[in-house]
């Protein structure tokens, strides 16, 4: 099947009450209605108020994106649903931990590339590094691709966190 040319990728931020099962509700909604999840990040953001923030990157036609937001809004523990892609210009970042093993010229090259990308070496042994890199997903993709021939062992990515620009809360 050909990809529908109208398919767009959106980053949606969902503020929820941090009650048991709330993540299952959100994920179950996506699975049950056949929506895509490209990235999902969740953590408690206000301990006192007991609220969490879920950032989900999804894709679909504009009509499907509209449905996803409406369906999310219908869940009882959801406070707000904001589309960072259309409603509020926002900033998106992802963090990755990247393990690279190698010696000699490859090891030196891995270090050089990490400096260009402003990645931090969190762990170093004679034969390996663990780098921490933060940025937009495309930057992390590029970093991983460059590390592949240099002895890439494994990658752990956080998924996207997003926030709107300017002084206002979302």
């Amino acid at each position: 099947m050909q990809k529908d040319p109208r398919i767009e990728t959106h980053t949606i931020v969902v503020a929820v009450d941090n009650e048991p099962g709330v993540l299952a509700r959100v994920i179950g909604l996506f699975a049950g209605r056949g929506y895509n999840i490209e990235s999902l990040t969740v953590a408690e953001t206000d301990r006192a108020a007991h609220t969490s923030r879920i950032t989900v990157v999804t894709s679909g036609t504009p009509a499907v994106i509209e449905q996803i937001k409406a369906q999310l809004g219908r869940l009882v523990p959801v406070h707000r649903v904001v589309d960072i892609t259309t409603e509020k210009p926002g900033i998106e970042r992802e963090m990755a931990l990247v393990k690279v093993a190698g010696t000699g010229e490859k090891r030196v090259e891995a270090m050089r590339v990490s400096q260009v990308f402003r990645a931090k070496a969190l762990d170093t042994s004679h034969t390996s590094f663990v780098f921490e890199i933060t940025g937009v997903p495309a930057k992390i993709d590029a970093f991983i691709e460059l590390m592949r021939p240099l002895g890439l062992v494994e990658v752990s990515r956080t998924g996207i966190a997003a926030i709107s620009r300017g002084p206002e809360p979302m």
Partner: peptide, 8 residues
């Protein structure tokens, strides 16, 4: 009354 029904 249910906004998710609109344009579904």
């Amino acid at each position: 009354i249910d906004p998710s029904q609109i344009n579904k």
